[in-house]
Design a protein around this nucleic acid. Structure first.
Lengths: 224, 224
DNA sequence: TCAATAGTGTCTATGAGACAGTATGTG
DNA sequence: CACATACTGTCTCATAGACACTATTGA
């Protein structure tokens, strides 16, 4: 039995407005997406219904806090998926969001897992399409904006940053060239600190100047 | 009196799902947006309500046909605006679209006009914000995709194309460099025809290889 | 001392801006 | 012929890839 809704003018209305969140991070040199159990043993994206008087972004942040315990997260709107029949429960458009969280994030929700992205898992609803849009957006903005600040929150070494960029771009970068070019974006600054990880010369630490979405200086970088 | 809606589970639902369309073109060397009369003498974007069983993109195409008489139009989803209170009639999220039409397009709707974008006009609702998002999207994709095919439908000379690109980018391009770089995107092809406009050597004609959204070869071009 | 990791310098290929000069039309 | 517009060739600067070389740590 599907749900229905009617407005005060007598016309059919959407049953609800949903939001789905593509939570991405880089773990073990792989891009991974946070998934929950969906119907039919398929993977699904976390999400929920937008409350009356609530902006979709607020809903997304609220759900993200419930799933990961994180309050300050890089979050941006991705696109809206509203094809008829996308949700068997009825007419439920969803405003998809892209969120990036630090590598060390552990889901607080016991049903949530990190899944390789892209991978061979079967997805519920139109979530595979939403995931594809999220990855394309992330790749496209990688060298042009500070998106990566979501994963590289706090201080990081150039080597750590490089591993994150490599997992997202799906290619290797020369270490020297990488450092030069990341500095050239004007988006990062040195903290002045250093960090030693095992043997070898300690690495200088950097941080992104802003944690809110910003565009870089318009340099180019080949992804493929 | 604001509208309301309730779904079959007893919860408040959106009153309706709307779509607004930012129809852009280049006329008289200026970027222009199609506007209709909104409340309070303000300018408004054309749009309408998404019907039950309809995808928002279909609604946008239907409305576009009513306003301009055009059936095949470059159209892509822009973003969804759903802040509470954005529409005084009630909870009405809108899926905004970006559409590009040829320069010669004349509105069939008598209330519709071409308005300079950006300009100093006052806008209804959150339409100024939607327009700003559309212009940013168009500028950002200009040299990376075939967006301009929406305006340069059919065959065009390099000079015509340059005028369109200049109006969108807000800067002048060297004619020789422009032609070289537009060809280098791999998105256009020569038709083999020529066209004479007054005195001077006739210009070769080109067309975009695809009329559906495509990405170019990843070259760069400075906008500012 | 060596191994390991971090960081610097530089050579080269390519794309983009600028512009001089050539080609081909109309009157 | 003059003039106007279209097109070609080329110089130069900036960016990105590659890689040799130096620097700084722990064992």
């Amino acid at each position: 039995m599907t749900w229905t809704a009617t407005n005060s003018e007598g016309y059919a209305a959407p049953v609800a407005l949903a939001t789905d969140i593509v939570v991405l991070t880089v773990r073990d040199a792989r891009l991974r997406v946070l998934t929950i159990d969906g119907p039919g043993g398929r993977r699904a994206l976390p999400g929920g219904f937008v409350g009356a008087g609530e902006a979709p972004e607020q809903t997304a942040r609220r759900k993200l806090r419930e799933k990961t315990g994180l309050a300050d997260v890089y979050l941006e709107q991705l696109a809206t998926f509203a094809d008829p029949g996308r949700d068997p429960r009825g007419w439920i458009p969803t405003v998809a969001h892209l969120a990036l969280v630090p590598s060390a994030t552990t889901p607080t929700d016991p049903g949530a897992r990190w899944t390789k992205a892209p991978g061979r898992r079967r997805w519920a609803f139109d979530h595979e399409q939403i995931l594809a849009a999220a990855i394309e957006r992330l790749e496209g903005k990688l060298w042009w904006s500070n998106v990566a600040v979501g994963i590289l929150a706090g201080a990081f070494t150039m080597t750590e940053a490089r591993h994150v960029y490599e997992a997202i771009a799906g290619r290797a970068y020369d270490a020297a060239t990488f450092a030069r070019d990341l500095k050239a974006t004007g988006l990062v600054e040195a903290t002045g600190e250093r960090r030693a990880e095992g043997p070898g010369r300690p690495a200088a630490l950097y941080r992104f100047c802003d944690s809110t979405p910003r565009w870089g200086l318009g340099r180019r970088k080949r992804i493929a």
